[in-house]
Design a protein around this nucleic acid. Structure first.
Length: 485
DNA sequence: AGCGACGTAAACACGT
DNA sequence: AACGTGTTTACGTCGC
């Protein structure tokens, strides 16, 4: 128990909260610069770095930016859209602001501005908010102050909220492995503090977290791995991903998922990689989208069709298990569980690459957001449990072990994950952290470039084959005609 | 009930 | 010195 409460300096003065919105530049948008991807190394290694996970990521990000619009509409609209999270008053028990359970039942009439929604607490966790804020930044990095600003801008609720939320933001940034500081050297001096960015390695987790919120453009069946039987309306991804009617964006757009974001100026968002490809490499046209294992299926069918001419039905692959494909519909790679590939040598080559990508990338797919984003709290809880009950439960023991490892502190959660020695004093750890990590700023760009190059390669290959086949067919046709004549 | 996720408060160190 | 930022600890609530 903390005796605490020395009158010492308070980190958060009551007045400091109001100053957050000052002097910030609103336009956090306009991510056009992603095209600057370094395409220097066109080797397979680059293209092979593309994976299902990446594709999922791209897809996710494609709606993330719409999600920004979505949350705009949410935060500024009077729509009565209260998430279950919010209804339950989850996690908002600030003594000063906690509404009584009746508030929700009463429609919050007395505490919420129904006209603007300004006083409605957003249904996003702080992690999600920070994530969106950073993702919405041109350089994918923001100082805390701008994170405050972004949140304030999109969720006026916080303007009048108790100032503790800033503490929560900082707390999240520090504690959550998904967020990492950018070396100050590389980024121009921005005064106090440093820039925060998303750790690419954990981006999936944040996306997953976002997907879990009831306000994202994915239908629930896509939001979580479905175990339901395969129901794949073939045209599903030729129109817009369906939104359930309660989704403000759905309503806002009259039932259509809109496009018109800055990165994706035109074109229906059906498939992240597809759209992004169009945006970054307009020359690359999307492969035909088939509902299941779209691109790979397309590749395979094209290759099989053209390469094994004369054979009636060169393709033997059966539709992959749909439960997974609902999610992998937008992936380059087929599910690894498809040993029966094709008989075509060339297609084997390509598919082998794809499968290898899957294998290669598999470990990169961090299990679930929850496990990563909140490891610290988990350990805290475990330790707390241990304190409470002197429990010897496995987690408590593990946490205790971790705590021991960390030398009575729990810095293992984030710092350890970054390989920073906990035995060093804080100051030295920070210095070490600054020196240690080679900057991976371009990683993202490279990944994007890789994926696109991969797509380009596949596409080029396909085009070649297609052209050759078409040419052949044309010639055959002409020959027949000339023979007839 | 235990656990995980999340929010909040607070103390403290450090930089500007 | 004041303030902002970053880290850490502690604790509460909620849902599963």
């Amino acid at each position: 128990m903390g005796p605490t409460m020395p009158p010492s300096k308070k980190a958060q003065s009551p007045s400091s909260g109001a100053s957050a919105s000052e002097g910030r530049s609103p336009p956090y948008r306009g991510q056009g610069e992603a095209t600057e991807a370094d395409a220097g190394d066109l080797s397979l290694s680059l293209s092979a770095s593309f994976s299902k996970a990446d594709d999922e990521e791209l897809t996710s990000l494609s709606w993330l930016h719409e999600s920004t619009d979505l949350l705009n509409s949410f935060s500024h609209s009077g729509l009565r859209s209260v998430s279950p999270l919010q209804e339950a008053g989850h996690g908002q028990r600030s003594p000063s602001s906690s509404p009584s359970p009746d508030d929700a039942l009463l429609g919050d009439a007395h505490s919420f501005d129904l006209g603007t929604g300004a006083n409605r607490k957003p249904p996003y966790s702080f992690s999600c908010l920070i994530f969106m804020a950073i993702e919405d930044a041109p350089n994918k990095r923001l100082p805390v102050k701008d994170i405050y600003g972004w949140i304030l801008e999109h969720f006026p609720y916080f303007a009048s909220a108790p100032t503790g939320w800033k503490n929560s933001v900082r707390h999240n940034l520090s504690l959550n492995k998904c967020f990492k500081k950018v070396d100050k050297d590389r980024s121009q001096s921005i005064g106090k503090g440093s820039l925060w960015s998303i750790d690419p390695e954990y981006r999936h987790n944040l996306i997953q977290a976002l997907k879990k919120t009831p306000y994202h453009p994915y239908p629930p069946s896509l939001a979580t791995p479905s175990t339901s039987p395969p129901t794949l309306p073939p045209q599903t991804f030729h129109s817009s991903p369906p939104l359930w009617s309660g989704n403000p964006l759905f309503r806002k757009n009259g039932g259509m998922l809109l496009q018109g974001t800055d990165i994706f100026p035109r074109g229906v968002i059906q498939n992240g990689a597809r759209v992004r490809s169009q945006a970054l490499f307009p020359v690359i046209r999307p492969l035909p989208i088939s509902p299941v294992g779209s691109r790979t299926s397309a590749i395979r069918s094209s290759l099989g069709e053209y390469l094994s001419r004369g054979q009636d039905s060169p393709l033997r692959y059966s539709p992959p298990p749909c439960a997974e494909d609902l999610q992998e519909d937008h992936t380059y790679s087929t599910a690894p569980a498809e040993p029966e590939a094709t008989s075509s040598p060339l297609s084997d080559d390509i598919i082998a690459v794809e499968i290898q990508e899957d294998i290669k990338q598999e470990p990169r797919e961090v299990p679930l957001d929850s496990h990563i984003t909140s490891t610290a709290h988990m350990a805290q809880n475990a330790l707390r449990g241990q304190r409470r009950h002197s429990s010897t439960g496995p987690l408590a023991i593990a946490a205790a072990g971790a705590g021991t490892l960390a030398g009575s502190s729990l810095t293992w959660t984030k710092n350890r994950a970054r390989g920073i020695s906990d035995t060093l004093p804080l100051k030295k750890r920070r210095a070490a952290a600054a020196l240690e990590k080679p900057e991976s700023d371009d990683e993202e760009m490279k990944e994007a470039a890789g994926s696109l190059l991969h797509l380009a390669g596949v596409r080029a290959c396909l085009n070649n084959i297609t052209n050759r086949a078409a040419k052949g067919q044309k010639e055959q046709k002409e020959q027949k005609e000339t023979l007839r004549n």
